[in-house]
Every structure is written in C-alpha cells, then in structure tokens.
Amino acid sequence: MPEWVQSLDIDGWTVLGVLVALVATWIIARLSRAGVAKLVDRVPGLSDGIKVLAVRLTGYGVWLIGIGVALALLGASVQPVLAVALILAVIAVLVLRGISDNFASGVVLQARHPVDVGDEITSGGVTGVVIELNSRAVVLQTADGRIVHLPNSSVLGSTLVNNSRHGSQRGEVEVRIGRSELSHDELRELVETATEGAAGVHRKERVIVRSVLRAPDRGVVLVQFWHHPLHGVAVRAAVVDALAEALADRGVPAVVTSDPPPPPLAGPTGF
C-alpha cells in the first residue's frame, strides 16, 4: 500500500470529523456558487458561458480545499498531495494557457464593449458582422457568407476597427474623366448630384468631390459619401451605376470604379 495510506490515523472521531468537513464543504460550495452567480449577474456584458464557467470554477475550488482538509484530518502526509497538486497545476497551465488567455480577453471585451453583436468590425485583416461573442472567440459573418472565429486574445491584442460605432461609414469611388465640353465646375456639380441621388447614400452628410488629377485632356476625381455601415458594397455599386449613367447621358467619356487599381509607374496619355 502507498505510504500515505499507511500513515492514515482512522478512528471513529476521525471519520466523524471527515464527514463533518465534507458536509461543510458541500454547504459552503453551494453558498459560494450561489454568491458568485449573483455577483456575475451584476457585471454587464458577460455571456452566459462565462457566468457558468465562473460558478463551476468556484465550486471546484471549494471542493479542493474541503478534500484537503479531510485528508489532513485523516493524518495523511501533505507532501505527496502537494506534489500531485503541483503537477496537475503545471499541466493545467500548459494545456489551458490559450483557453485562459481567450477567456480573460473575452471578459475584457464583454465588460468594456468595444464591439457588440450586429457591429461590423475589422480585425486581423478580416471584415465582417459580429454574430456572437463567447468566452473563446468573436464570431463574424463576412460579406460573402463565411463564418470566421477570431480568438478573443488576438482581437484584444491587435488593431480593432469598429465600422458601426459611428452609425455611418464613408465610402468612395474614383471617376476618370476624358475630354469634355463641360467645365470643371459643371462636372463637379454633375458628379455631386448623381452621387446624392444614388440609393443608400446618406443625405445628412454632404458628398465630397476631390480632384486627384487635372490635365488638359483628362481628369481624375475621388467621390466620397456616407452610408449605413452594413450596406457598403450595395451603396458603392449604386453610386458607380448612377455616376456612369449620368456622365454617359451628358456625353462625358469616363471610367467609374469603386476599386481603383494601383497607379502606373508612368502617367498614361489617356484615362
């Protein structure tokens, strides 16, 4: 038999003391779990998963202490118990290190509220709408329907852009205009009017037309406008169509794009 078992000093009073310790542990564990449950309910933003985990960890901790007290009453040697506890703690730290990092980061994210369900965010090079916040990850749905799980620790430790917090988002398209009989002011007014009339463009923020290039035979302007954060793709497409139609109706040769290519090394002679 193991030495720690042989060292046990068991009699009637010892058994009674162990029973009392275990019953007291059971009562304290229940009271502690109930107290922690009420406490975490008062913390805003915590998910149900995090609340359940906090309650369970509290119960496990109380039971570990109670079992240790019971073994001490039996006269068991403390050193083997401490050695086993230390080994288990080291294993738990190594195995659960990533989980604990994500759990702690999840608590911070849900307590500080940098993002909420329904927000469109950009993090780690991924842009999508937040559909779930849990103890492990921020779950996004991208514009093309993919589901992406971003670990909480990576979201908290990297640049996080919340596209929805302001309530609107700015979009832009580039217009390359060829030779035209219209003056620069007339072209600017035409572009502004067409953009303002596109579906989804906000009316409370004015459309901005910035000149990027002006030459005798061509010009490039950047059109900036505001829209709902979740409707960027559709609104940019509507603006491209509206500008292309308006310029074509006035006989202005132009190329309109919402995804301009990088500039060439040498300036082209056309647009």
Rank of each mutant, 00 (worst) to 15 (best):
L64N: 07
V95M: 11
V23K: 15
A254L: 09
V148L: 09
V107W: 07
V255W: 10
I99T: 15
D41W: 15
G178E: 07
E205H: 11
D11E: 12
A266L: 08
P216S: 13
A248W: 05
P151D: 04
S168E: 10
L74E: 09
D119G: 00
S135H: 11
V220Q: 04
R250H: 08
V69P: 03
V220G: 05
E120T: 14
V129D: 06
R176S: 07
V155M: 08
A137P: 06
A137Y: 13
W63P: 01
V115N: 10
N163Y: 13
V36I: 11
A83Q: 15
A104Y: 05
G128H: 00
N134T: 13
A89E: 03
I91S: 01
P253S: 14
V90M: 05
P151T: 03
T195N: 02
K51E: 00
L39E: 01
V239T: 12
T14A: 13
R176V: 03
A238D: 03
R236H: 09
V155E: 11
A246T: 04
P260L: 00
R112F: 08
L213F: 15
V175I: 02
R176Y: 04
L8D: 01
V40M: 14
V235M: 11
V207N: 07
D144Y: 03
L86G: 13
V43N: 00
G49N: 11
V256T: 03
K51L: 00
P151R: 03
H149N: 06
D116W: 00
V5R: 02
Y60V: 00
I99A: 14
V43C: 01
V20Q: 13
G75Q: 05
S168V: 09
L247F: 00
A215Y: 01
R165D: 14
V5I: 13
V235S: 07
T58V: 12
V148Y: 08
L82F: 06
V191Q: 03
Q110R: 01
T122A: 12
R97I: 03
G145A: 02
G219A: 14
V5E: 04
A24E: 07
G219E: 10
G219V: 04
I87N: 14
P268Y: 15
V252Q: 06
L86E: 08
H228W: 09
L53P: 05
V139Y: 02
Q141S: 00
V78G: 01
S123W: 05
L247I: 00
I147L: 08
A37K: 06
P114E: 06
L82E: 03
I177Q: 12
A104C: 05
V23D: 12
A29C: 11
L150E: 14
I131A: 05
V139Q: 08
S180V: 09
V52N: 07
E205G: 07
L88P: 09
H202P: 04
R30I: 10
H149K: 06
L46A: 02
I50S: 00
R210M: 05
F225M: 09
D41S: 15
E245Y: 04
N162V: 15
V138D: 13
T25Y: 08
L39C: 04
G124A: 14
V175Q: 00
H202K: 13
